[in-house]
Every structure is written in structure tokens, then in C-alpha cells.
Write a protein that binds this DNA or RNA. Structure first.
Lengths: 214, 214
DNA sequence: ACTATGTATTTTGAATACAAAATTCTGAAC
DNA sequence: GTTCAGAATTTTGTATTCAAAATACATAGT
């Protein structure tokens, strides 16, 4: 038995993010604190603490007297978030040790090419993508930047379950990752950063069609 | 009479940030919730909510069973924060309407040159600097970016009260702001961004000496 | 049928209460 | 004097309670 020694609010936050990723919360719907707390088997106090933390990451919105609701999605906001993440990941690459980048490049290439299976659930695709970007940023020593990226990406998870299947875009994503990895292999950091930006812009455009007009 | 219709947690958060800016909280010291709540005339519940929000912005740290403490300062973290803010402000400039930038450039120049008074308290200098950067970013339509910048800068406030007076650096800061404004006047956005980055790097270096070694 | 108004119910925001940790204090042993 | 064990105290983390605001409902009037 693993005795959890983290505050409830953090465990609850993680559980809510899991459920969000699984698509259990629709954008725009409001949270009923009593119901959710009962469902989680905790009191409203740590639940509210978790909700406040998530509101700080843009996952939830709060209105005086009206409680919390899952932030509505919009194409505009998605574009904004992608621009931010692209800039932050670029910065992370810039401030990474070039030697380390060269060292992980082969593995990045492997991962990018590795899964040509057509039948992957959306969840697995996203998990792999996270893993790939995680490895890409593994050499960044800017801890605050890594932390910040995690928060901003949490705010983007709301969009991940909007897309259903698709096989062609996955191939494109894979090809773009290969391109980045190849640049890193050749020690072409500026080229890698450009390719990374293109990857985010490309991923954004592929996603945009799936976001309902507000 | 102004009826406050914002949640207590937000009012408390703002009040704590004010006090932090005034230097009333030393880095590394821990928060006594009961004492602070009594001082503010509220219960621990909304205070803790505010503390959790501030922890999300990096102003505070929390440890299970040990509560909250004001995050210690370090040169490393300051460098990290400056790199992040520089990147985000650059992005904000890039995604601003060039016409708007040209339009505000004269006012930016005015503000930068406007205050040659040697006897300015550190607080006023910081307020002016905030105002100047606020105007610089006023044309950025990326709301999430503006919001994020606010949060990251909140985490940087801990460093502002470390510096005591200085007059030469203020002149440098002013000169750098002029340079940025001039670039904008000439419609040289890449030049302005480069100058903006230089401004942050310069400000950082001037500050570094005042940060105690960890 | 529709709107408006007043009432009941739900739900949030904040205060209080309580239990479990962590800290401080005390004193004995060396 | 120092160090350790154990009790007393403080402080946190979570649950519960309470009041006020928001919502839903029902009734009367047009």
C-alpha cells in the first residue's frame, strides 16, 4: 500500500487533470463542488483548493457567486496557447546544452519513426507526443521554464480530446519530429528551433478544424 | 462606498502582493496562517486559497505539513525568470499590430526620457518601469500571453525590493527604453525586439550583484 | 401563453472545529 | 554541557457548519 504523503489538493488536481484528459469534463460546463467532492471521497475544502490551482492554469474559470466552470474552448485561445508554448519550447531548446541535444537526437529520431501503427487511440498518440517533447526538453536546466511549460500545457489539455482519430496528421507529426531530430543530429540548433516552431504551427492548424466556432 | 464584489481570496492575494512589493516579507521566511489571517481580519480559509494561488505563481512554496513560505531568491532563478519574461515580451511584441506600435512609440519615448530626477524611490522607479512595459505591450491581443506575463512577473517581484537606490543604472534603463522606442518609431520591429532582449539582460546583470549567493 | 414577483431550494463563500503532523520545551542520562 | 526521549504546544490539513448569494420554482396578473 502506497501511503500518499502529498496534500489532498495536489492529488485531487492530478485526478481532475486525468479525468479532463479522458474527456470526462466538457468545456464550458460548471463544477458542482458538493457532487464532485462526494464522488472523490473528500471534503469541499481540498477540492476547492485544487480548483483554485487549476483556475490559475487556465483550466477553469471562476465567477463570484457562481463557482467554477471548465473554461470554454475557442480557436482564438488555442492559437494564443500554441504561440506561447512554441516560444517557451524554443527558449528551452536555446538554453539546452548542445552536446546533450546531440546525444538525445538519435533517440528522438527513433521515437519519431518508431510507431507507424495506424490503429492508435488518440490518448496513446498524445502520450507519445508528450513523451517526445519531454525528452526534447530534458536537457533544459531552466527549472522555472520547465515548470511554466507544464502549467501552460495543462491549460491546453482541454483541446486534446476534441480530435477523434485521423491517421494522416499523425504521419505529418511524425515527419516533423524526424526533421527536428535530424537538425539536432547535425548540430543545427537554429534549424531545429525553426522546425519546432513549424511543428507547433502545423499541429495547431490540424487541430483548428476540430474546435467549434464560438 | 465601494462594495467589494470580488472573492476574498483575490483581495487577499493582491494585498499580499502589495506587502511583498513593499518588502514586508523576507524571502525564505514562512507564513503563519493564523497570525496573518488575524492581521488581515479574515479566516484561514480564504487566506489559504490566496496562498495556493500565489504558490502557483512561484511567489510561495509549500511543503506537506510545513505550510507555506516565501520562496527563497537565487541568482539562478532570477536568470531563469528574466529569460522567460524576455521571451514572452518578445513574443508579445511580435504579435502586436505594427501600426499600433508606431502609434505608441512617441509616448514610449516621452516616458523613457521624461523622468531624469535623481531622487526617485525604488518603488516609483519600479512603478514607472511597469507602466512603460505595460504600454509597450498594450497592443498585444494575445490575452493568455498578457495574463501569463502578469503571473511570471508576480514571481519576479520578490527581487525588486532587493536593490536599494542607484542612479547610474536608472539612466541606463532609460537609455535602453529610448532605444527600443526609437526602433519602433522607425518600424524596425526586429531591432526593437533585439533591444528589448538587451534591456532585460542588462537589467538582469545590474540586479544580479544585489542577490545574495545561495 | 407569457411575464413578473415572491418564495423555496440549491450552491457557493467564508468561518469554525477537529485531528494529525510538526515543532518546541523539559528533564534525565551521560 | 550535550544529547536524547517524551510530553506539551503550536501549526497545518481537512472536515464541518453557517450565512449569503444565486438559481429554480410556483403563483398571480395581464
Amino acid at each position: 500500500m502506497a501511503i500518499e504523503r502529498r496534500p489532498l489538493r495536489e492529488q485531487i488536481r492530478d485526478e481532475l487533470m486525468d479525468r479532463l484528459t479522458r474527456g470526462e469534463f466538457a468545456a464550458g460546463t460548471d463544477v458542482n463542488e458538493a457532487v464532485l467532492a462526494a464522488e472523490l471521497g473528500v471534503s469541499r475544502t481540498p477540492l476547492r483548493e485544487a480548483l483554485i490551482a487549476l483556475a490559475g492554469e487556465g483550466v477553469l474559470e471562476s465567477n463570484q457567486g457562481r463557482g467554477f466552470r471548465f473554461a470554454p474552448v475557442s480557436r482564438t485561445e488555442f492559437r494564443e496557447l500554441v504561440a506561447i508554448v512554441a516560444a517557451l519550447e524554443s527558449l528551452a531548446l536555446e538554453s539546452s546544452d548542445p552536446a546533450h541535444l546531440r546525444a538525445i537526437a538519435p533517440r528522438l529520431l527513433d521515437l519519431a519513426q518508431g510507431f507507424p501503427d495506424q490503429v492508435a487511440t488518440h490518448a496513446t498518440v498524445d502520450r507519445r507526443d508528450d513523451e517526445w517533447h519531454g525528452l526534447l526538453l530534458s536537457g533544459c536546466s531552466n527549472e522555472r521554464l520547465i515548470d511554466l511549460l507544464g502549467r501552460v500545457k495543462a491549460g491546453m489539455r482541454r483541446y486534446e480530446n476534441l480530435v477523434v482519430a485521423e491517421d494522416e496528421p499523425v504521419a505529418r507529426e511524425s515527419e516533423e519530429h524526424c526533421e527536428i531530430a535530424r537538425r539536432l543530429l547535425e548540430d543545427d540548433l537554429p534549424g531545429a528551433i525553426t522546425a519546432l516552431r513549424a511543428n507547433w504551427v502545423g499541429g495547431m492548424e490540424r487541430m483548428l478544424a476540430h474546435i467549434p466556432a464560438e
